[in-house]
């Protein structure tokens, strides 16, 4: 315990700055992937035949181990921030896109017919009726995505990415030293806390933005 406090005394600054960069790259990845997923989702909405293959790709891609994707980025982008961000985006897009397509597909045909029948254009129907109705499922995708990406980002440190992973691998390199366990433990807990905080934020977002009529 005293070893832990001793570590925190000199290590807290690194921990905080790494936490910050961890949060930043995750948030950046989430923002980019939300845009990408929205664009792909819209494409799948307009071209119905695209939905099936996109869903297959999303569920397949989610089974790919993160280390493999990081490895594949190295020959193209080298080490550092960019390949890490790209891998995070690839991972984050999948659940968002999957839930976006699933959500839009799960709306009752009666409601769609009513919307068209009273004279909504396709675009209007999408934004006034379909997206709000699919929104809870979409936010669930965002939540899942963010939690997964926080974990994947920790591996990113191995290829030179920012974040708390650096402390993890640092601790691993110092196996046996007194600071190793406190380092790894506190970095792991920080990652856990970030994931839970993001989950909480998305939960809050869904509480606020999901219509009480469908909650």
């Amino acid at each position: 315990m005293s070893g832990y406090l001793q570590y925190l005394r000199y290590g807290y600054q690194t921990l905080l700055s790494e936490s910050l960069s961890h949060v930043l790259i995750v948030v950046a990845a989430m923002l980019v992937s939300f845009v990408v997923a929205a664009m792909l989702g819209l494409l799948a909405y307009r071209r119905a035949w695209l939905a099936e293959p996109l869903l297959s790709i999303t569920s397949t891609a989610l089974t790919l181990p993160s280390l493999a994707l990081f490895g594949l980025m190295i020959p193209i982008f080298g080490l550092g921030f960019v390949p890490t961000l790209i891998v995070l985006v690839i991972y984050a897009v999948m659940p968002i896109l999957r839930n976006l397509i699933t959500g839009l597909n799960s709306i009752s045909p009666a409601i769609l017919e009513a919307a068209t029948g009273i004279g909504m254009t396709r675009t209007r129907r999408l934004f006034v009726v379909e997206v709000p109705l699919a929104w809870p499922i979409i936010v669930t995708g965002l939540r899942f995505s963010s939690m997964m990406v926080v974990g994947v980002a920790a591996v990113g440190a191995y290829v030179g990415g920012p974040g708390l992973g650096a402390t993890l691998f640092n601790g691993l390199a110092e196996v046996g030293s007194r600071s190793a366990v406190p380092e790894v433990l506190s970095a792991t807990i920080m990652i856990l806390l970030i994931a839970i905080a993001l989950d909480g934020i998305f939960w809050l977002i869904s509480r606020i933005t999901v219509s009480p009529g469908i909650r």
Binding site: I111, I118, G119, P132, L133
Partner: peptide, 21 residues
């Protein structure tokens, strides 16, 4: 859609938008 805006339409399953009041 212009045509439909000028014609009232009621369907069997009501088709009310559940997220709207």
């Amino acid at each position: 859609h212009r045509l439909r805006q000028g014609i009232g339409y009621v369907i069997q399953n009501v088709g009310l938008f559940p997220h709207m009041t």
